[in-house]
Design a binder for these strands. Structure first.
Lengths: 164, 164
DNA sequence: TAGTAAGTTCAGTCAATACTGAACTTTTCT
DNA sequence: AGAAAAGTTCAGTATTGACTGAACTTACTA
């Protein structure tokens, strides 16, 4: 049956989004929820729909949706006729995910500075190890947000013209 | 005593490098080794020195140094007079760490493409969710390496003039 | 307004995996 | 060459944190 084949692919996709975002520190189930919300139709799902589709407990759905909302990756929406809440991917979620990397870079820069203080009495060529790291963090802390800004601007510009 | 104070700071620095790199998927102990190799004097350390300083078993030092070498973050060096091997931070280690992020971006792009195939029959506004993610990954896959390249070039240029 | 469905919270379980320690191999020193 | 020191491998332990399930709260419906 055609439909089962399709669902098999979707299951795989959802699982792989879970794995990918696990690399970025999200719990597996949070990534699965995002994966499902990326491809579902309609694009909004209730907690119980999520629980059933993902074969997960209501408990973990509740915990993980709260986390995703705090992180700004999904949002609650009200659906006319139904009173209970639905979730959907928040527009801009993906730049948000990338922005978390930026704050990690900032942490790295601060840490490198603490390190530099510790080696300040060593000969300059020994300080080089840490200077390299520090230098890169400083560079990225400045340039990374600019890069994302450039993307957002380009994207906005293209929003006007309907593609294809 | 002045020296104990210093060692306290160093311990903390090492531990925090461990925590930072854990975010990027390295085992804690691997990050600690890098942390120590960033600030130690001399800049090269033998496995047994590492084990003693970090209060770790010889076993985990052996496993983790092998991992770090495979990842291109540290290297073996021969020290005159001593036959056994020493380790030190490999120059360029930090751009290497960043490069691992790039390959994660590539994974994300591929995954987004699989997702797009799954929603190709949905109305265009529903495809938007995935297009945003895909678009960003494509952008970063192109621009991120260019950014690192720019940094490396700038750094090379500055290598000539001794600073301060 | 009572009854049911949906959602939240949290204590306890389970699974993944980093790390230890012991047996073994390789290197170094006398 | 023999003894000791250093390094590797791997089976087993310990720790961490995600997930479940049950008790509870809130929202909906007849």
């Amino acid at each position: 049956m055609e439909k089962e084949q399709r669902w098999f692919q979707e299951k795989h996709f959802i699982e792989d989004v879970g794995l990918l975002l696990e690399q970025s520190g999200l719990p597996r189930m949070a990534g699965r929820i995002l994966g499902l919300l990326l491809i579902c139709n309609p694009p909004h799902q209730s907690p119980s729909e999520l629980a059933e589709t993902l074969h997960a407990s209501k408990g973990s759905i509740s915990t993980m949706t709260r986390l995703l909302i705090e992180m700004g990756l999904i949002e609650r929406i009200a659906v006319p006729e139904r009173r209970r809440d639905y979730f959907r991917i928040k527009p801009g979620a993906w730049s948000q995910i990338i922005m978390f990397e930026v704050s990690e870079v900032a942490t790295g820069r601060q840490l490198a500075e603490r390190g530099l203080a510790l080696v300040e009495n060593q000969p300059p060529e020994l300080q080089e190890r840490l200077k390299e790291a520090h230098d890169l963090y400083v560079f990225l802390e400045r340039e990374y947000p600019l890069l994302i800004g450039r993307w957002e601007k380009e994207r906005e510009k293209n929003a006007g013209k309907k593609k294809k």
